[in-house]
């Protein structure tokens, strides 16, 4: 059964860059969302195993998504992918339940390292 991946970013280019960086040998189904509201709708509508989440988005940002997921008993792996590389931003999202923080611009090598670290890919 393929892993269900949700890519959340307001920028179509950023989503494209992330999807291109995903390991080609990873058996996945990809869904995309352009903001936090769409992300939560996708999360509630079906299975999401791994969520790649941007922080700075209109309507509902990444912090608000993390907060909502925590209130609703988070049961998917959230990897934050953000240009906001402040140490405090990284500390905050990890404290809010994200398993990892990847800084933009994303690279295939960096992404694979994080996925391997959490045993998501081998």
């Amino acid at each position: 059964m393929p892993v269900s991946v949700l890519v959340v970013d307001d920028s179509p280019i950023a989503r494209k860059m992330l999807i291109k960086a995903l390991p080609p040998d990873w058996d996945i189904e990809i869904t995309q969302a352009a903001n936090g509201i769409e992300a939560l709708a996708a999360y509630r509508a079906g299975r999401v195993d791994v969520m790649f989440l941007d922080l700075t988005m209109p309507d509902m940002d990444g912090y608000q998504v993390l907060e909502t997921l925590r209130k609703e008993d988070l049961n998917c792996l959230v990897i934050v992918v953000s240009a906001d590389v402040q140490e405090k931003a990284q500390e905050r999202v990890l404290a809010m339940g994200a398993i990892a923080f990847i800084r933009k611009p994303i690279t295939a090598e960096g992404l694979r390292d994080v996925l391997k670290q959490y045993g998501i890919v081998v």
């Binding site: 920028s11 953000s82 240009a83 906001d84």
Partner: peptide, 11 residues
């Protein structure tokens, strides 16, 4: 998106 990355570094 590129400006966003530059801005993150500035921030």
């Amino acid at each position: 998106e590129i400006a966003n990355i530059g801005m993150g570094q500035a921030g």
